[in-house]
Write a protein that binds this DNA or RNA. Structure first.
Length: 310
DNA sequence: AATTCGGGGGC
DNA sequence: GCCCCAGAATT
């Protein structure tokens, strides 16, 4: 009997990745590579489809308001990726540069993404190192210390000239170099496991204020803060200039979200209010507009806890 | 060289 | 609940 797990695996392996068009499109390659940073293929695909539908070209992305870009990124995490994507689209001036060195100048292009776009979409002979490459090379060569940095040093020598794109994208269905792999007998030892940092608890109280017509009061989170630039329920401690509370707040419950470096816990309250916010970062949002707004996953959890579909 | 920045899936 | 992770920017 086949397990459902096996079937799921089989389906995943057969799946067509929508950014692997022929010929390869630089814009699409770029978007997919950025979305795939720290994010699984299965999660990315629907986001990619929606994003490409809304921003089919570099120019469309450059012309779009940042808020629209963040809205399409809502739930994907690491929102600076979206802000940098937008900034880079505007800086590119109509077309992406064709070399890794030049791409590296654009915001959001680190060593990996620059090499990926240059080799996959423009055919440049440059190697790349992602987490997988670093791990494989760490095992094959028994690298200790900073495997990623050493892998970048080794990679150019492994690159078949003229086929960098093909080489960089290849994935191992089976390992054919076991016999020369120096980490074979202790694969878990290479690369050295990282020590995990503590995860301090970050806690605040937020309030879902509803106007008589059902609109919800949302605030834009400040830059350089967690979820920077995303919309959220206002914390009860912040001032709400122009907004008047109508009646008491009632507690609706607690929502939590585990992030890489923090555990976040938000106590959600609800109440009624009215008035005209005297700030661009504070606005009433109709219940039907919530789904097309740049909200973090935690913000959506908070809204649902307050009984608001989003 | 460390720290920060989200989130979901496997078990 | 605890594990993992397909990077970049900042300090």
């Amino acid at each position: 009997m086949f397990s459902t797990k096996l079937l799921r695996w089989f389906r995943r392996e057969k799946r067509v990745l929508p950014w692997r068009t022929e010929p390869r499109d630089p814009y699409r390659t770029w978007i997919s590579e950025v979305m795939l940073q720290q994010t699984r293929v299965d999660v990315v695909i629907p986001y990619y489809q929606r994003f490409l539908k809304r921003f089919p070209t570099l120019d469309k992305l450059a012309e779009a308001p940042l808020d629209d870009v963040l809205a399409l990124w809502s739930g994907l995490g690491y929102y600076s990726r979206a802000r940098n994507l937008h900034k880079a689209a505007q800086a590119a001036g109509g077309a992406l540069p064709r070399t890794a060195a030049e791409l590296r100048e654009l915001p959001g292009f680190g060593p990996y993404t620059a090499a990926a776009v240059a080799s996959l979409a423009f055919g440049e002979d440059v190697p790349l190192v992602d987490g997988n490459v670093a791990r494989v090379l760490a095992r094959v060569f028994a690298l200790d210390g900073d495997a990623r940095a050493q892998a970048w040093r080794i990679a150019p020598g492994l690159l078949p000239r003229g086929r960098a794109g093909q080489f960089n994208e290849a994935h191992c269905t089976s390992c054919t170099i076991r016999t020369v792999c120096r980490g074979r007998d202790a694969p878990e030892q290479f690369p050295e496991p990282k020590k995990r940092p503590a995860r301090p608890l970050l806690e605040w109280e937020a309030v879902a204020l509803r106007r008589r017509d059902g609109a919800i009061l949302l605030v834009r989170r400040p830059p350089h803060d967690l979820f920077a630039g995303m919309w959220d329920l206002p914390a009860t401690e912040i001032k709400l200039p122009g907004v008047r509370l109508r009646g008491p707040l009632t507690e609706k419950g607690v929502v939590e979200q585990t992030l890489t470096h923090r555990q976040v816990r938000v106590t959600v309250k609800a109440g009624r209010a009215s008035g005209t916010p005297r700030s661009d970062d504070l606005r009433w949002v109709g219940p039907n507009a919530l789904h097309q707004l740049g909200l973090s996953s935690l913000a959506r959890k908070s809204l649902r806890k307050a009984g608001i579909a989003c």
